[in-house]
Amino acid sequence: MTLISDGGDAPLSSLSGQLSPDEVNMDLTMCGLLVDRAEELAQLYADKGNWNDVKEIWFDERLSNRSTRGSSQKIYRVLTSRFKNAPTALPNPSVLPQVFDQCDTSRDKAQILYLYLVSDDSLVRYVVHEYSARVARGEPNPLDFSNETLSTILGNLTYSDGSSFEYAESTTERWCEGIRSVMREIGVLEGQQAVEGDSPSVGTIPLLVALDYSFEIGDEDWITAPRGLLYLFQPEQRWEELFDRAATTTAWEYLELHGDLDLRPSEETYSWVQDGGDS
């Protein structure tokens, strides 16, 4: 198994034995990215400024619309976990409505929310790391999300206590379908029946988020392994094009340092959110 490293010369390093069984959850069996509901929660948080008020309003509205309390609780717990546990390298949930306002499509929003999912869910992150490594190695058909391939990847997982991944087959199959639903939302898979996909196109706003995230979470050599682009399964031959696209916005620029061009945020990361635009 492989893991995208936190920096250094090599973009990939070993992950085997890094997870404990308690870290693994299977919530994806019922919840994907849920873009509309995640956007609603982020707007409530931006308006109210605290999760207690958000929770009260959320459940009042759900019950008035005759949603089941159990379903509402699960969705609330899953989505707020992603927001509350988000690293500072991602936009604070309070500014997500501003970020979403600049997105052109629902897919743009999904690609941004996907980074919160990967950051929060250790099992999803483990699987995404493996697919990112397959893309980086140039393997044929690297983005095969069939049950067979996903089950093989999960079967290779060894926990820190030496035990192996073990769930009922039906649960694993539902989780695999959940992963495929996420891949459809971010543009890797096209169509309900597809299990083999391609690296997705990346909109301008998710590109800026992915690069700001990569810059914040990496070290001075972040550009040799941009975490956000790797998570979005962008092969290395696309990076220069994506860097150039970012540099055409006001958010990022090329600077000449020691005779080399270096890509850097024009101001602080995510300052483009407060500035109200990327152009």
Rank of each mutant, 00 (worst) to 15 (best):
S5N: 15
G8S: 04
D9R: 14
V24L: 10
L28Q: 13
L28E: 09
C31P: 05
C31Q: 15
G32C: 13
L33G: 12
E39P: 06
E40N: 13
Q43R: 15
L44G: 03
K48D: 11
G49V: 02
N52E: 11
V54W: 01
E56M: 03
I57R: 07
I57C: 02
W58A: 00
F59Q: 00
E61M: 11
L63C: 00
S64Q: 11
S64E: 15
R66P: 00
S67Q: 14
S71M: 12
S71P: 02
S71Q: 10
S71W: 09
K74T: 10
I75N: 07
I75Y: 11
Y76N: 04
V78L: 07
S81M: 12
F83C: 08
P87D: 11
P91G: 08
V95M: 06
L96F: 12
L96N: 07
D101S: 13
D101M: 05
D101H: 06
D101N: 12
Q102R: 10
T105H: 06
R107W: 09
K109P: 08
K109V: 15
Y114E: 03
L115C: 03
L115E: 06
L115W: 05
L117Y: 11
L117D: 14
L123C: 07
Y126C: 03
Y126W: 07
V128A: 01
V128Y: 01
E130G: 04
E130W: 02
Y131M: 02
A133Q: 00
R134G: 02
V135Q: 00
A136S: 10
A136H: 10
E139V: 06
P140K: 10
D144Y: 02
S146M: 07
T149Q: 15
T149L: 12
S151G: 11
S151A: 13
I153R: 05
L154M: 13
T158M: 11
D161H: 08
S163P: 12
S164W: 10
F165W: 09
S170E: 14
W175L: 15
V182I: 15
E185I: 04
L189N: 03
E190C: 03
E190H: 10
S201V: 04
V202W: 02
L207T: 03
L207I: 05
A210H: 02
D212L: 02
I223N: 01
T224V: 06
A225C: 00
F233M: 15
F233P: 08
R238F: 04
E241L: 12
T250P: 00
E253I: 07
Y254W: 15
L255V: 14
E256G: 01
L257M: 05
E267F: 09
T269E: 05
W272R: 01
Q274F: 08
Q274D: 12
G277N: 04
